[in-house]
Each structure stands twice: as C-alpha cells, then as structure tokens.
Design a binder for these strands. Sequence first.
DNA 1: TGTTGACCAGATTTCATATTTGGTCACGAA
DNA 2: TTCGTGACCAAATATGAAATCTGGTCAACA
Lengths: 235, 235
Amino acid sequence: MAERAGQADGRADRILDAAAELLVRLGYRKVTIEDIAQLAGIGKGTVYLHWRTKQQLFEAVLLRESISYVEQLLDGLRRDPAMLLPHRFVSESFLMVGDRSVLRALSEAYVQQRQHRFADAFLHSQELLASERFYGLMIRHGLFRDDVPNLSYTLSAMMMGFHLNDAADLMGIEVDTRAKAESISFIVRHAFEPPEPPDPEELAKAASEVIDVFEALIPPYRTWIYAYERTHEPG
Amino acid sequence: MAERAGQADGRADRILDAAAELLVRLGYRKVTIEDIAQLAGIGKGTVYLHWRTKQQLFEAVLLRESISYVEQLLDGLRRDPAMLLPHRFVSESFLMVGDRSVLRALSEAYVQQRQHRFADAFLHSQELLASERFYGLMIRHGLFRDDVPNLSYTLSAMMMGFHLNDAADLMGIEVDTRAKAESISFIVRHAFEPPEPPDPEELAKAASEVIDVFEALIPPYRTWIYAYERTHEPG
DNA sequence: TGTTGACCAGATTTCATATTTGGTCACGAA
DNA sequence: TTCGTGACCAAATATGAAATCTGGTCAACA
C-alpha cells in the first residue's frame, strides 16, 4: 500500500479536524488548502497524499461528520427503539443537523454556490441515510406507510422547505428550530406513518434490524474517507 | 383625483401587459422601464404617472396576476365546492402557479436575487391568499385540522420545498410537476385535514363563505394596483 | 520512502472606466 | 390648466485589464 500515508498516526484525521474547524470559522470559499496544512502542522503537498482535490477533502469532512451523526442516531435508537418512529426519527435528525456546526456550514456552502458542486458530496451522506434498503425495511415493518407517492423524494422535498428559510423570510417572521422540528414531526406523524402505532415487539425487531443495516453500511464509507484512490462509490 | 391618469382608457393595463410580456421574455433584471414604455407605445415618464418605482410597477404586475389566479380558483370552487378540500385546493393551486408564466418568472426573480427585495410584493399575494380570515374559516368548518402547529407557516414551508427544486437536484433526479402535485396532495390530505371528510352540506356552506370572503377581499387589492398614491396597505 | 514548499496555470479579486437605467422635471401639446 | 414626454442626471451596473490568490504538481530533499 504505497500511497497510503502512515495510517495509524491519525494524520488524516488531524487534517480533517483542521479543515472542519476552518470551515466553520471561515466558510468553504475562504478556506485554503494551505491554511489547512498549516493548522494541521504539515506541508501543503501532504494534504494531497490523502485526497486528490479540495472537493474530495471536504467530501471526506462531510462524510465523517455524517457518519458520526448516524452513529449518534443509532445510539439513541439503542437506548429507545421508539425513536425509530419516523416522526421522532426525522425531527430528531433535523435537530441534530442544526446542532452540528460542520453540517450547518456545509449546507450553507451548498445553498450559497447555487451550483450543484456539492450535490455529489451530499449524495453520499444522503445515500448513507436514505438508502433504499432502509426505506424498504421501514415499510416492511409497517413504520412508513406503503402508499406515500415517491416516498424518498416527497420526504426530502418536504424537509427541504424547513431547512431553507425562504418560507419564513417570505412571511417576514422568524421560526426557531424547535418549532420547525415540531411542524416536521407533526407532518411525518400524520402523512408518513400508518394511523395505528406499530406493535412494540415489532418495533424493537425493526430497530435492531435498522441498527444492523447501518452498522454494516458504515465501514465502507469510513474507508472511503481515508482512501486515496477511487473517485466514487465506496462499497 | 388629479394624479390618476385617464382611468377608463386602460393605459395602466397596457403598461402592465407590456411589463408582463417582457418579464416573461427577458426576466426581471433585463427589463427596463424604457422597453416597457416603448412596447406600450407611450413615453417613459408616463409610466411614472402610474407607479412611483419599477419595484412598485412589478408589484402591480404580480398582484394583478395573483388576483386573476384567485379568481380562477374561485371559479373552480363555484363549479365544485369539493375543491375546497385542502388537498385539492392546495395541489390545484400548485399546478395553476406552474401554468402561469408570469408567476413563474417572478418567483424565479425572487429566487435568483436572494435578497428579499421581493418579499413585500409576495407578501401581498400571500396575504391575499393566506389571510388569517381564510384559515380561521377553514378550521371552523372542519376543513383544516385545528391542531396543526403553526398552520400557515408549516403549510408554506412544506410547499416551498416542492416549489424550489433543491431536493430533486440533490437526489440527482427529475420530478415532474404533476408528481409533485400528487405528493403535496397526499401530505395535505393526511397531515392537514381531519381524518373524516366533512359533511357535504357543511362543505357547500364553507365554500360559499370562502367565495364571499375573497370576493370582498379582492377589490381593495385591485384598487391598489392602479392607485398612484400610497406605498403600502390596500384596504 | 515519505514529505515538502517553490512553482505554475487558471481562477478570482480589484479597481478604474464605460455604459446602462431608474427616476425627475422643464417644456410643449392639447 | 392638464397631461404626456424625452433629455437629463446620479447611481447602479457592466466591462475589462492588471494584480493577486489558490488548487494542484513535482523535483528535490530528509
């Protein structure tokens, strides 16, 4: 494995840390590779031993953060399987994203440069969370309704409206994150879940399956973060 | 009424027609007052006998279009009171907006210049449609649920997600307008309406009330379109 | 073998100049 | 006197050349 730089030394993570910190502090545009290298205490060229482009470096930042966030979700799920109920799951996620400055900064960057330069990057984190596998499983266990047209698109379009602030801006009001989460929770509860709550037994079973799915899903993505090679597709 | 230009001659409407046509053809930014005047066959200064600023002229364009669109809705409502059911009402509106090139162009302009220069203008058309009076009436007749948190914001945030195309872009797919309308209809049906459909009697009554409310609401707005004076508030 | 920073081309910013355009108003037509 | 106009102005915007910055490479070095 010639091109992988010292693997146990955590240098890649130090670079990602630096990138993340500067990202939050300055925003995507203003962060330069040199800044990052300096903050990580290494030479500029070294960054390129880990990732081919700035783009890819920040995809790695996004992906690492997304994984950590999925793990946070899984933790919650282990503590309380009822968190798998979509209205809790989805609104909880919404709040968690709002709490993660790195994700906030990246989605900021996405919104600003209206070009879909970041679409790819987000796709990864999207795939991660929104894999068809996940939806299939949720429907099979009766957690999502099976008659929502275009489920995954419909859900994310709806969410998008709350993420961007345009609706509030237009109405000339401010809506705090908590209130948004309540709206989301309400919509999901009534439009995306079956009327009757699932059997608790079933729920627990589904929860453990979901945990398994994601735990199996994460490692290849994590590898991809640090892997110099490929431009696409983890596992 | 000294400052009102010849009122019966319809010159104001000719100007609005010209503005609308150029708007659709060139987009807000590229339309100049001079173009408009020329197309309307009048001098530039004359435009300013009707509206104080370019901004206000286009607010008038938007408002006139919005009124015509509300009237189209009311027509539908008169033909079939069941159109008042929110899931029909809302998704129908969504489709109608998509069909009106002027509204499309204007919301395009709003999205592009991310500044809220247009917020005011949209506010008018928003007020028009989304007046508290309307929601109150709908809830009272059992057409909207009474337990949706923050009803008017929640509804428009949700809609916003479908109007902007970000969700689809992000997922790298295309979703046609019809499919979006179905998603919207589904969400509204299940999350914003009470479980049981209303009594048809009640529905007809509500419909006629709504028609009355809007018919009373429209005239002041229409006046405002052509009124040279005031910068704000119609009625 | 792994790391680096000088180096380069292309992108971005800057800044001065040219052009456009929203808005006014003195004048002329009706 | 009333209404309509287009020449006019300041401010905004477009243009474009030059200066600067930055992603990415690679010969040299540890």
